[in-house]
Design a protein around this nucleic acid. Sequence first.
DNA 1: TGGCTATATTTTGTATGCAAAGCCACACGA
DNA 2: TCGTGTGGCTTTGCATACAAAATATAGCCA
Lengths: 235, 235
Amino acid sequence: MNNTRDSARKGTMVDSIVQSLADDIVSGQLLPGTKLDAQAMAERFGVSRTPIRETFSHLAAMGLVTHRPNRGVVVATLSSTSLSGLYEAMAELEAACARLAALRMNSDQREELQRIHTESVHLVRDGTAGDYAAFNQEFHSLIFTASQSPHLCELAQATRARLAPFRRAQFRLNNRVSQSWEEHDAIVKAIIAGDAESAARLMRLHVQTVSAMSAEFVAEHRTAPGPKLTQEKSG
Amino acid sequence: MNNTRDSARKGTMVDSIVQSLADDIVSGQLLPGTKLDAQAMAERFGVSRTPIRETFSHLAAMGLVTHRPNRGVVVATLSSTSLSGLYEAMAELEAACARLAALRMNSDQREELQRIHTESVHLVRDGTAGDYAAFNQEFHSLIFTASQSPHLCELAQATRARLAPFRRAQFRLNNRVSQSWEEHDAIVKAIIAGDAESAARLMRLHVQTVSAMSAEFVAEHRTAPGPKLTQEKSG
DNA sequence: TGGCTATATTTTGTATGCAAAGCCACACGA
DNA sequence: TCGTGTGGCTTTGCATACAAAATATAGCCA
């Protein structure tokens, strides 16, 4: 039972609930289309509806939930066009990060990048899809940070969070893991070589590929309902 | 007096107040560092503190205000490093938009872009700094839209809003207007020619120039206080 | 039997009240 | 005269209460 979790934290209670619910959405505990009941959440976290409403505002601002006036809040459901649009933005953001990373990383950082990438080889054969997904997250985050552009990094992370519910099982598809590793390899080579434009181009292609995979997965498994179908209480 | 403005709108009251305050901040009515008093705002808009608090959450999520637990809300004050970081993100976003615009605009749209750019010549000589600033906004927004990437467009607009309070008077500087027009000209040429990479590079340089101008202006006029100086009620 | 309307119930949005945390001023001591 | 501690005052954060909107349900009429 994770009712109140670390409720006695420093922040304003709302912040901790935001964290908690955002985690639930990003991690897939709460599926897109699920309606969030303010009353129930209030009981779950042991607070009144007021801070819960504030929490919903925060989540809506992040794009993780959709707020319809007088009609409650649901975990964001993206149409396939919205999804591809979001991936496109992601591709551009990541490409920009990769470009800046290629220009700005110092030799220590380049070595570190090369190292964790090389070490990830064994995950391709021995690890589970989940293991590789976790590494993948780390890899991309490292490049965000390496761009040394905090705001760009922030935008990339935020966009990634919005996409998370829809890319859950991408690495279960085909031999996506080894293909992903090859793409990473090309990106790392470009960054190490300081070839900014190639790094950007390769990263853009990489994310576009992920986008296509994700769309394929969604199409096959019908994870995301259509634009008008609200799918209440899908759990 | 714009007390309640169009308070009887469709949305949930909170939305209209958010709009109103966001406008005040973006337009410079409320200066960075100004403390926003919940009680006073409640009276100004004729509502209780609850929706005002929700409004503050929205604004904080947009980055327009800073919320410190138990210490209230102030209009966001950016250090010069934060400011340049934000401009850097802006440059990358706008470059990405320009790149996509060069790839995707149809002939009608290209003609339209060329047309409004050409027409803006007379503003360089005859118009005021404010006139050109308004046109400039339109020009950039047009390219955002032309990217045909709604989310990228959204990110760009949001970032632009955050920067707005700090770029107020950039066109009063030197002969910035004519210089800006020349930069626009190069960008338009690249987009019309379908040269995506040049469009991106030129746009990035253009925004970087604006960033430098803005930093210079801030340094000269001390518009933005330092990181720790809170500057309460500067009006 | 099927569709429409009216009512009841749930749920959302806003107001008000109370407790706690922060800020300020004044007093006391060095 | 200056630094520090304490008390009051202001403001924030959360809870509870009430009003309005939406949804579900049941009844009515065709």
